[in-house]
Design a protein around this nucleic acid. Structure first.
Lengths: 208, 208
DNA sequence: AACGTTACCAAGCAAGCGCTTGGTTTGTAA
DNA sequence: TTACAAACCAAGCGCTTGCTTGGTAACGTT
């Protein structure tokens, strides 16, 4: 396993840049967990404040509005996981190995160290203003380009029949749904699940 | 295609029992669409009332609370789609054909006639009280049993290697995520997508 | 014609919400 | 010791929310 992967397995909220133990970082971590558990709308600024042990009004010394907290959570997590995806690409240049590395990386994002913030990204999408949806979408485009490049490389080698975009969306579905059922301490490991998913994409191992 | 499938393609909100043009049915249809578009919490009873052309207070002549509207939407859609799944089973008894019929039926639920209510079922799950989550879960167990039976039958015939529960969850992910990208009027048909998904499950056609 | 049920309106209440305000504490560096 | 910014508190404002209340119109049944 590459060092980037091993490192990312370490903590719970992950080493997301900007989610350190500064006041702002603690607010973001608490908010991410509350947003995942109760949803953005059902989480009050009083909830977040109570979680970090300050008064509700004091939050607005760190963030102008509640919406900005949600936005910050999403930007931080997407930046962090884009970097992780890029690391996986560098560590595994060969298309097939790269595919498996990307699947592992995405699973790590969704059910591993950044699972809370990732759930927020998926489920609280509508709570963002349209302007900010566009901003996050732009960041997501960078993330998706890495996937597209990998899948097109596989197609060029004749290892993928179906349309790359459709396949990518099937992978997204399988991976992101895993956050509803995967048990971190269960009998199925993240690596085993990644392997199962990869086999769904490229079929039975032929030329390995 | 079996008659049940062709019939289900007809309307937009579907022929869901209890979503007719009675006052209650019109409220449920409007609520389902609003809940999907804005989320349960961001949808006010005033929004729903405006949609059907009555005063906000009049809603509570038909439903005791706002939560009851959400619950009703979910129960109606899950009952309707369980019936559709069962119809598919009856129409296609052979395991492989049945698998494809089940995938088609589930896609029809998610991106076809009941897509609005299905989105609500997936995305507004947390807005239900725990008691009612249990009730809906019980209905969902019936739905899932149909899937399990089919996949176990495939395993018994040696057409499925991996664990049936894991495979079912991968299918759920691929299918439910389709509601975020599938274009009803695009070049990829529902049947074609179903076929692609089926091939992800049982691999290349060998003994057909 | 009288009745009862269903469907609705107009008005508003109590609670909770995001956020503001003016002032106080805490840490850091000159 | 003084100076200053960052971090926070206590109180509460204005608005929206789900829901209640008391009453009215429409309509089928006897």
């Amino acid at each position: 396993m590459a060092q980037a992967e091993a490192q990312a397995t370490r903590s719970v909220t992950g080493g997301i840049h900007g989610m350190d133990d500064s006041p702002r970082g603690k607010l973001l971590s608490a908010a991410a967990r509350l947003f995942r558990d109760k949803g953005f709308d059902r989480t009050t600024v009083r909830d977040i404040a109570r979680e970090v042990g300050i008064q509700s009004g004091s939050i607005f010394h760190h963030f102008p509005t509640k919406d900005d907290i949600l936005f910050a959570v999403m930007v931080e997590v997407i930046r962090f996981n884009t970097a992780r995806l890029r690391d996986a690409c560098v560590a595994y240049p060969a298309p097939l190995a790269q595919l498996e590395a990307l699947v592992r990386a995405e699973l790590q994002s969704i059910i591993g160290d950044t699972s809370e913030a990732m759930s927020v990204l998926v489920y609280e999408w509508r709570c963002l203003s349209e302007d900010r949806q566009r901003e996050v979408l732009a960041l997501r485009a960078v993330y998706e380009q890495i996937w597209t490049d990998c899948l097109e490389a596989l197609r060029a080698e004749g290892m993928l029949e179906d349309d790359a975009f459709v396949v990518r969306r099937l992978i997204t579905g399988m991976a992101s749904w895993a956050n509803t059922w995967f048990d971190q301490h269960g009998s199925l490991s993240l690596e085993a699940l990644a392997h199962i998913i990869v086999r769904r994409v490229i079929g039975e191992p032929r030329d390995r």
